[in-house]
Design a protein around this nucleic acid. Structure first.
Lengths: 337, 337
DNA sequence: GTCTAGCACTCTGTGTTCCCGAGTGCCAAG
DNA sequence: CTTGGCACTCGGGAACACAGAGTGCTAGAC
């Protein structure tokens, strides 16, 4: 049904429409891409493509525009990811290498991705549940309060103030710290709950009330942060683009952690390191937008996801190239630290 | 030159224009606000106000619109801050009280302020330089690396990985930690640099190389973070409003920490707890916007600033009320923790 | 059978004109 | 000083025409 020339026509339509933002007609197509056929032939092919639902015309006497289905075919079969230039790769490397801590890595990554793609970039913080405990620290604040600081192997730090049920002195705190660390050090965070359950038995009776309080806070921290933090950048890039769904909705979704989470999460597949693309209506929440995302993290240890969000009419090959490259570099940086 | 009635006319123009977003004419004015004079009289007053530069007309045959100077007079002399309703105050209180740590306080505050004012809210993180060291923690990562964690009395945590010039064992680290803490505990962060300068003398010679590295990182952390982090929320509220300067510029400024910093910082006066308002062109960076800001923090210990940014045409009394109230509550919360 | 050229048709977007109405400034009278 | 009256201005919307791009269809060429 769709011979090679028809596919070439579809590809040409997508490319032209992406670059000009105007419905593309048969004449311009036949000229600009050397298809070696006349506009009339192109028109016949276009009619066929429209019949199949790959393109559509906004008005009777206008050119054609790709549909979501058309973009899908383009992404799947007609395009290949465009690698970044050497200069761009070097810029990424040096920019990310300058990061001083995890927050900074995430911040730089999201800014970088936004600038590179000229879209809105979204980065999820590395998942706690897949990381392991590197250290638990208890800092006495006064005689009934300690600050609990949890440090993970990804360099992440979580902190909570814990109100103790009884007065504890410095030595008791030091003792608790030692016990906690010996039990938890190196554990995956997901296995902490079980450990916590039988931890009290190993403690001296007088330690138990304080320990129980601390452990419950620790658990709470883990559970609560399970739905991970997510950041975005590049909202200014939305200013030019026009969304069918309205700019306001997009901005609202960006600030709503939960929605953003879903948008990024839904793209997750069984091979998390693969690039996933959701186009327009394929997207459950924000219909008018497309999302290009991928997991990051070294090898089999996938930490979280990152990607960009933009109008359906975006340059997929370039965007995919940038997302993939940034994911690789940030994985590398995180593995090294 | 400006008698009471002219001021009343100006106030009426501002109020009407803010609520309708349309140039307001003499007839409508005379009717809606019971000025007890005829439209013709109002016209004379308007002519005088325009002569003085308080109002202007977009086109020859249109109504009047306040100028920046007009808004300024309105804010300074014609309006009074509108307090929040009891329900709103309760909502603020319960929402902020639920925060679990400093990040959460800031995050909730900025979201709250955005929702309350239907503008873009901006909150600066509490300033490090005004807080004091509560604890310095060194966590061994491997034999040449430690994580430096700095905890302040405001509950803020800063972290850095430090690469040491030599191999250090656990006991050495513990020793360094003890020394650092005894020196720095309770110090204002601004006085740290001097302390750091003569600290090496108090150390055993074998500690000096490692200590020097750690201290330099500590200093770096303080200096670098001196220009503070700043967050915003409510960008979706910009979608409706129209800015003379273009939506894109505003979004860009919001993501540019430095610019945002300046915008908020420039509003700072000798009495930081006072509400400051910068209207349109008074604002050095983003001309088309107004900023309502205030300091927060308990009493004389001002921690940082927060505020909202919106179109010049905003409801100043309501916005000012919201900013003031939120600043008070967040100060309260921070003082308690 | 597939491609091409020609032709009539259908739109949208743009430029023009026209007119209404809101709003103003000014003047003379109360 | 205030007010009613009046002529004037100008923006914005409606009606209209028109050019141009693009299409679908059909008949002929390879």
């Amino acid at each position: 049904m769709l011979d090679d020339r028809k596919l070439a026509v579809l590809r040409a339509i997508v490319e032209d429409y992406v670059s000009t933002n105007e419905p593309v007609g048969s004449k311009a197509l036949a000229e600009r891409h050397n298809l070696k056929v006349s506009p009339a032939t192109v028109r016949n092919d276009m009619a066929a493509l429209e019949e199949e639902g790959y393109i559509t015309q906004p008005h009777t006497s206008a050119g054609r525009v790709p549909t979501d289905k058309g973009y899908r075919l383009f992404v799947d079969r007609l395009s290949q990811v465009k690698p970044l230039s050497a200069a761009e790769r070097r810029a990424i490397e040096t920019f990310l290498a300058g990061a001083v801590d995890l927050d900074d890595v995430v911040f730089r990554t999201v800014r970088l991705l936004a600038q590179l793609t000229r879209q809105v970039a979204v980065v999820q913080y590395p998942t706690l549940t897949r990381s392991t405990v590197r250290h638990v620290e208890l800092v006495p604040l006064n005689d009934r309060r300690v600050m609990l600081v949890l440090i993970t192997n990804t360099g992440r730090v979580e902190q909570r103030v814990v109100e103790l049920p009884e007065v504890v002195d410095e030595t008791r705190v030091a003792h608790l710290r030692a016990v906690l660390n010996s039990c938890l050090d190196g554990c995956g965070l997901s296995s902490v709950p079980e450990l916590v359950a039988d931890l009290p038995e190993r403690l001296a009776p007088e330690d138990r009330p304080a320990a129980a309080t601390i452990l419950s806070v620790l658990l709470e921290t883990l559970v609560e942060r399970h739905d991970e933090k997510i950041v975005f950048a590049g909202a200014a890039n939305l200013a030019g683009a026009d969304f069918t769904t309205g700019l306001r909705d997009v901005l609202e979704a960006l600030e709503e952690q939960v929605v953003l989470m879903r948008l990024l999460g839904e793209t997750s597949t069984d091979t998390p390191s693969a690039l996933t693309v959701r186009i327009g209506s394929e997207n459950p929440y924000l219909r008018g937008t497309s999302i290009v995302a991928t997991g990051y993290g070294s090898g089999d240890n996938q930490l979280a996801r990152l990607g960009v969000l933009g109008p359906t009419r975006m340059d997929y090959p370039v965007t995919m190239g940038a997302v993939r490259a940034v994911a690789r570099y940030v994985s590398q940086i995180l593995a090294a630290s």
